[in-house]
Design a protein around this nucleic acid. Structure first.
Length: 565
DNA sequence: ATAGGGTTAG
């Protein structure tokens, strides 16, 4: 019942966009000129034969194209299948069958995929378990989960690979609790999970920050001790669930490590506030034989940025080309802008934006905006926010941030103006939601939520805790009430922010001393941050809150984010 | 023949 509340939340990037299709020409067969001339006339032949529904000649032409270095793609096969259909040539179409599979795997356009799918149904391939799992996989990769699900549901018999395809599809499209539901269904249907299943399940745990479930999966992972991909997924799960001890222990026990293992561990340490350790690990990586890649360096710069190591960051950034042969990319520039901005060097950050060989995008300006927010540079912040809203007018986060900046500098007219624009553009703030795992059950809380069965007890406990905290100097920061744009505008509403409810529920239900781990869908507000720091100290309790982009480890009155987030 | 892993920003 409680898991359902989580299902509507979306976390990660949108699915990949469909791209335009064309025949792929592979060069190294003959000189370029011949290829171009040959391939275009062969393509003409092929198209003509298809048009004439002359299947044998069309297939011959296709074969000739392949011999001349023109690779057949899904357009080619879509044509062939149409050709078969026109001739009612089911038997011949089956000859295309094996090709169809390889084409399905390479298909990156939804329109072509739909054509292929229609063709497949009409010639009767759809009952083929291989074709089905390829269809599921490709629909999922194109972000068409409902289509993938339809293909899956219509299957009379399923094997493990089909289950893995659909579970993997949901796990990779951030519909992770559906992936977990399917995993349960799979077990009920009598299938045992293999490496592939477990990897997807771990990924789902990672997405929802379900440490308890992830730890249960770890037990099954032990069977596949030598599986590198699975161990990397396990590593990432522990990092993203904020359990660095477990992550380090998995990492040190891994028999084989590749660049992904190292990158995951480096970023994981940095994301959880252990920048020094992350940089130390990068030094060990240099000693090992694994060569850092683009992503590794992003993690390293991220670590420097969060620890305020401006010099180190610059050094890594400037030497990455020389030492590792990697050109600084957009992401590296974004990290550097973040690094400079965090350190208060806002003008250097702006200078870097102008110097970089890329057009600044929304991400670039967001990095600058974050810095402006912390260093209270209202003018620059407004400038950056406006750039973001030009590039991405539908981004609720920027409106909220802009409104927060105005609120912090007491510019209430501007706050009202931002709200008006949001309303006019139909943009709404996602309601705040936090959740916590207790005894293998997920308990989710919305702001001022009263649906939890123990809500009266929780509220009573919360009031009592706030009184105790006020006694040691806690002053609820009502500024944050004014920042709420939707539905949380009551004066006392910060008292009922979802993370406070979750923390209190954690204190009530977990055994004393067990780390309270909370996941939430929005960034934590300043008041809840202070509340968590003081609660951690007063109750002598470690609290880990993972918001959509940061980790906060609260311990003894401090937070690992260093109050910068 | 079909399935699984890592990054910045928000």
């Amino acid at each position: 019942m409680i898991l359902k509340a989580v299902s509507k939340l979306k976390w990660t990037k949108p699915s990949s966009q469909a791209r335009q299709f064309s025949l792929t020409i592979t060069p190294p067969v003959a000189s370029c000129n011949t290829i171009t001339r040959n391939s275009s006339s062969l393509l003409d032949d092929f198209t003509r034969f298809c048009y004439q529904r002359d299947l044998p000649r069309a297939m011959k032409a296709m074969h000739a194209m392949q011999c001349h270095g023109v690779r057949a793609d899904s357009v080619t096969y879509a044509e062939l299948i149409k050709c078969c259909l026109a001739r009612h040539a089911v038997e011949e179409a089956k000859l295309v069958h094996n090709h169809v599979l390889s084409v399905l795997r390479a298909c990156d356009s939804l329109i072509i995929l739909r054509q292929l799918h229609c063709g497949i149904i009409k010639v009767g391939f759809e009952s083929d378990v291989f074709v089905r799992s390829a269809l599921i996989d490709i629909y999922a990769k194109l972000g068409e989960l409902r289509n993938a699900e339809c293909v899956f549901n219509e299957m009379p018999t399923r094997d493990l690979v089909v289950w893995n395809s659909i579970i993997g599809g949901f796990a990779q499209n951030s519909d992770v609790d559906e992936a977990l539901n399917l995993y349960k269904r799979m077990k009920r249907a009598g299938f045992a999970a293999d490496q592939s299943t477990l990897t997807s399940v771990l990924r789902a745990c990672t997405g929802l920050a379900l440490l308890e479930l992830g730890t249960q999966v770890h037990v099954h992972v032990l069977k596949y001790d030598h599986d590198l991909i699975l161990n990397n997924a396990l590593l990432d799960m522990y990092c993203k669930c904020g359990s660095l001890e477990d992550a380090m222990s998995v990492f040190s026990r891994m028999i084989q490590k590749d660049v992904i293992s190292w990158s995951t561990m480096i970023s994981g340490l940095a994301q959880n506030g252990y920048s020094q350790e992350a940089l130390k690990l990068f030094e060990s990586m240099k000693v090992s034989r694994i060569k850092p890649n683009y992503i590794t360096i992003v993690g390293v710069l991220f670590a420097c940025s969060h620890a305020g190591f401006v010099e180190d960051g610059w050094n890594h950034f400037k030497s990455m080309k020389k030492f590792y042969g990697i050109d600084p990319g957009r992401e590296h520039y974004s990290c550097m802008i973040d690094l400079l901005g965090r350190a208060g060097k806002l003008h250097e950050a702006v200078k870097l934006i102008h110097e970089m060989p890329y057009e600044p995008d929304a991400v670039t300006w967001r990095a600058l905006l974050g810095a402006c927010k912390v260093h209270r540079n209202t003018d620059l912040a407004i400038c950056a926010a406006k750039k973001i809203l030009n590039l991405d007018p539908q981004d609720p986060g920027t409106y909220i941030l802009l409104s927060n900046i105005y609120a912090n500098s007491q510019k209430w007219d501007e706050v009202a103006e931002v709200r008006k624009t949001m309303r006019a553009r139909g943009i709404t703030k996602e309601p705040g939601c936090s959740w916590i795992e207790v005894n293998k059950q997920i308990h989710a809380f919305n702001v001022a939520d009263s649906s939890h069965p123990q809500i009266d007890k929780i509220n009573k406990h919360l009031k009592h805790l706030i009184q105790k905290l006020v006694g040691v100097g806690y002053a609820p920061d009502t500024n944050y009430v004014l920042q709420d744009l939707e539905g949380e505008q009551k004066e006392d509403s910060i008292q009922y922010h979802s993370e406070k409810l979750a923390i209190v529920f954690g204190l009530m239900s977990l055994t004393q001393g067990k780390t309270i781990r909370i996941r939430k869908n929005l960034r934590i507000c300043g008041d809840c941050h202070t509340f968590a720091k003081l609660t951690a100290k007063m109750e002598n309790q470690t609290i880990v809150i993972r918001d959509p982009i940061r980790y906060h480890h609260f311990q003894d009155g401090n937070c690992s984010c260093g109050d910068y987030w």
